[in-house]
Amino acid sequence: MMFARYGRFLLAGIGLILLGLLTIPPTVDHARTSIREARAQRADPFPSGVMRVGINPNNPPFAFYTPQGEMIGFEVDLAHALAAEIGVEVVLVPVGFDALFDALTADRVDILIAALIADNFRGTRAELSQPYYDAGLMLVNAMGWDAMRDVAGHALAFQLGGTADEVARNWSRRIAPFTMLPYETPDHALDAVRLGIAPAALVEASAVAGYLRAHPDWTPDTPYVVNQPYVVGVRAGASAIRREVNRAISALYRTGQMQTLIERWL
């Protein structure tokens, strides 16, 4: 009778204990090691005083070589600015895009600044910082448009075969019909808007910036309609480095240095 009366509480208790056991990490030693490592990293994420930055130098204007063999670009300057903010020396390590994450895994670099777009897959290979730039697509127009729906029933200029082409064709299946105006180059698509041939163009942000610099009297709306945030990659588990990079990026934004870099290069 006693068991029947209190048995359900006993079972419930056992169940709770079992659930509690499930929350214990499978390898206690490993967890302790990780905590120790994390504490050590928190103390000094760059114990050598040097930050090795993996950079893909084939990506102008983000990073590229001059004819004299000097590596320059937005991400080169960003690496130096981050290092100054963190208080370490910087060593730039040129790495081809395909080898970036292996270079991180093999401990040849500490971080990657290489036009990495944040996505779930990269999140499994590295820790990712907060964004430092959005290389997405802008809907350039003088109509007050700021979204896909605004294009319905009108026309849209873009570069044939590029990312904007893919997005435009995708939009054509999602909203009311609109006229697609494929041009050979992004500049031609923007010319079409500036000259009143098309109401809007879909163009990548850095191409828009370059075009607007060449046409300073033209001031269209340039809302982002597709985001491609660039982030810094840090070795998985090196959370202290990621935190330090995030802090430095925030500081660069706060002090206006990031905007200066963007305006200089992009």
Partner: peptide, 16 residues
């Protein structure tokens, strides 16, 4: 490759 930024890219029309 027709990436607009890669050093070794070309226009999509040239790629074709």
């Amino acid at each position: 490759n027709d990436s607009p930024r890669w050093t070794y890219g070309v226009q999509p029309s040239a790629r074709i």
